[in-house]
């Protein structure tokens, strides 16, 4: 249990998938101009990450890992080279499926999340979390917690960023540094602030 809490807190703060591993930057910069949309995308990312990370875990350990297919009598098969293609296919499929389900059952949620879902299948953070999950040899439960934690961390970062960018509108910024340039620098400062969490012993 303590281990799970530690994974969660670490993936939200110290090892924030965006601020320490730079994943999901494209949509982070593009969508952080407004708090509401940032919030919407953030929720969508949490949602998709929490589903796809464990799902990819199952796919990896039941089908792709070396020796994973021993249950159908093929213990020597190693399909792990297919993991990139499988993971991205699973992510794309899940995003599509979620979109359809939401569309069918909740119009309110669809109008809130719908526009962001297509953006998500090419969000590096989603694929990144699945790949890190394999790299770090997580167990199933850990992968659930890690997926959720990374999502929350990403959301926290993008919402904070949106809030900061709104403040920046009233700032007098040198030409050329406006928008993208200053966004990167602010992200850097934020990353620095998040690193301070590493001094805390969870």
């Amino acid at each position: 249990m303590e281990n799970l809490i530690s994974i969660f807190l670490n993936s939200v703060f110290v090892g924030n998938i965006l601020l320490a591993y730079f994943l999901g930057m494209c949509s982070f910069i593009a969508v952080s101009k407004n708090i509401d949309t940032a919030m919407g995308l953030g929720f969508a990312v949490v949602f998709v990450l929490t589903i796809t990370t464990p799902l990819n875990w199952m796919i990896y350990y039941f089908f792709l890992a070396p020796g994973a297919l021993s249950w159908v009598g093929l213990p020597d098969l190693d399909l792990s080279f297919l993991k990139f293609i499988m993971f991205i296919a699973v992510i794309a499929a899940i995003v599509q499926a979620i979109e359809m389900v939401i569309d069918r059952f909740s119009a309110g949620l669809y109008s809130a999340l719908g526009v962001f879902l297509p953006l998500i299948s090419v969000n590096c953070a989603i694929l990144g979390a699945s790949l890190f999950m394999v790299e770090r040899e997580y167990t199933f439960i850990e992968s659930v917690v890690y997926g959720f934690g990374s999502g929350v961390g990403w959301m926290l970062a993008i919402v904070a960023m949106a809030a900061l960018r709104i403040k920046l509108r009233y700032a007098d910024i040198p030409k050329g540094l406006e928008d993208y340039g200053i966004a990167m620098i602010v992200t850097g400062l934020m990353a620095m602030a998040f690193m301070l969490f590493s001094g805390i012993s969870f």
């Binding site: 540094l177 340039g181 990167m184 620098i185 850097g188």
Partner: peptide, 22 residues
């Protein structure tokens, strides 16, 4: 060597280049 420095370097590079390109 830490993550934040990369963001800041990119930010400054963008600044330099945008001014230049303009």
């Amino acid at each position: 060597l830490l993550a934040p420095s990369a963001f800041i370097i990119i930010g400054l590079m963008v600044w330099l280049q945008k001014t230049w390109v303009k």
